[in-house]
């Protein structure tokens, strides 16, 4: 997952992630890419459009 510079670390993505893959730190967002199955629920729910799925 690509986390854009304007992410505000609010954690909404972590709350809706069905697999509990997202760790919100104070100024970073970490994805457990192995657990993630690219459902994109986090991308769609982000209030500031700061997540983008990595292609390839």
């Amino acid at each position: 997952m690509i986390v854009k510079e304007w992410c505000m670390y609010c954690g909404e993505c972590a709350g809706v992630c069905p697999r509990n893959c997202i760790q919100v730190r104070e100024l970073t967002l970490e994805f457990d890419e192995e657990k993630c199955n690219n459902c994109n629920i986090c991308v769609k729910s982000c209030p500031v459009n700061a997540l983008e799925e990595e292609v390839g």
Binding site: G11, E12, G15, V16, C17, I22, K44, S45, C46, P47
Partner: peptide, 24 residues
């Protein structure tokens, strides 16, 4: 908070469908 990871680590079903999470 709404991230609610602790509950899920403990096996509680706390994750929310997007239709139940108001995006503010």
């Amino acid at each position: 908070g709404p991230e609610s990871r602790v509950g899920r680590w403990a096996g509680l079903k706390t994750n929310l469908k997007p239709g139940n999470m108001e995006s503010c």
